[in-house]
Write a protein that binds this DNA or RNA. Structure first.
Lengths: 209, 209
DNA sequence: CTCCTTCTGTGATATAAGTTACATTAGCCC
DNA sequence: GGGCTAATGTAACTTATATCACAGAAGGAG
């Protein structure tokens, strides 16, 4: 497991990598697992070694709104922030592809901040990029209509899937955008008719998006 | 100016307060001033001594969406995050009540993180609370209809104004929620008819909100 | 192949929100 | 007071999205 850490988190200094190897606990999850739910206590910071995680904001009545992806080499900004304050989670994290995660105990997270400049910079950069991503999400729901939000959603998934073929059902998309399946079906149909994409069962092929 | 800093930022250690007094530049702004616009470079972290600032997210075509307030004793999380990376601002900051701000040069912000535990904790807490506030905003626009969003908006303003009488025009509210004045007028009228508030010209008196 | 389930397409209708178009009112300046 | 401007009220209409109600299609299991 040593090699991957050095490669994935290439900005980390050698002593930091050593410390991680010595102290961190590696935990494995299967696709579909929920890592944490809204309201649970966070006791450690999460670093992703492999797999894909989706982060959601939850509604009181079961709605779930997609916020962003976590991928190998990244950390969960929320777990960092909440951990330092013994707060409960404001988000829900779901495993999309089988994942290996490094769980960094809260005490270490704090200690390293003062000791390892590369850890400090990593944490700050994680905050920054997530904050910006969330602001982009706000933009979309505050200013845009559903058709543009759908395109924004598809683009983000395209980026992470690193492919023009997305394996998503209309219902899945609707849930993550907090709208209804029919609305998504109709909008996708329109986009197909404009030649922007191709629809198959459980698959959307992006052409000019 | 020493006394206010010690009082307003009571968690700061004595050496940190001293450093701030020695190095920081104090800048004054008038109500209506724009401190920073979307796209401008951020060169320092902002601490609020007095006054009130409103933070907005801007649209390409002039729309502005209210995100949160900054008040005495608080810092701008975005300026902290962006500053460390020489990034441009993703937000717009407008002065609501005449304000005095401490401008902390970027280099110091970073240096203090490693040297002063109380600064580190303040920064982390600032990130955390703003991230949470933004997540609440996301909740509202993602899951709620305009009537609930309006109530959420009024509550936040009530808290900051520390009064049940809010001096806001319907147009102002509409702009900050990115909707139209008529919609707000209608919804406010409904709330008045339900006895939740009282409408006067340029003033809304909250009764049971 | 047949059955069954899940996914997708689509019309009809309901509702919230945005738009247009004025009328009315409150406060300010003279 | 009279006139002006900004703020508010409201009706009529349009549009986007949500909901309901099905029908058909694709693919897996037997």
């Amino acid at each position: 497991m040593q090699e991957p850490i050095k490669k994935l988190f290439s900005s980390f200094s050698a002593p930091l990598v050593e410390e991680i190897e010595k102290n961190a606990v590696i935990q494995e999850f299967k696709a579909g697992d929920i890592i944490i739910r809204t309201g649970q206590y966070i006791k450690s910071t999460v670093l992703v070694i492999s797999g894909t995680i989706k982060i959601y904001r939850e509604d009181e009545d079961g709605g779930e709104f997609f916020m962003y992806y976590l991928q190998p080499g990244q950390a969960c900004a929320i777990s960092m922030i909440c951990a330092t304050k013994h707060e409960t989670s404001q988000i829900m994290a779901k495993v999309v592809e089988d994942a290996e995660l490094i769980m960094v105990p809260l005490a270490l997270m704090d200690k390293w901040m003062m000791q390892h400049r590369s850890w400090y910079e990593f944490v700050i950069e994680t905050y920054r990029s997530r904050f910006e991503e969330v602001l982009d999400v706000v933009d979309n729901i505050a200013f845009k209509a559903m058709d543009e939000r759908l395109i924004f959603y598809l683009k983000r998934h395209q980026k992470v899937a690193n492919s023009n073929k997305l394996n998503l059902s209309h219902q899945e998309i609707a849930t993550e955008l907090n709208t209804s399946r029919e609305v998504i079906s109709r909008l996708l149909k329109k986009l197909e008719q404009s030649g922007l994409l191709l629809l198959q069962r459980n698959q959307i092929e992006l052409l000019k998006i």
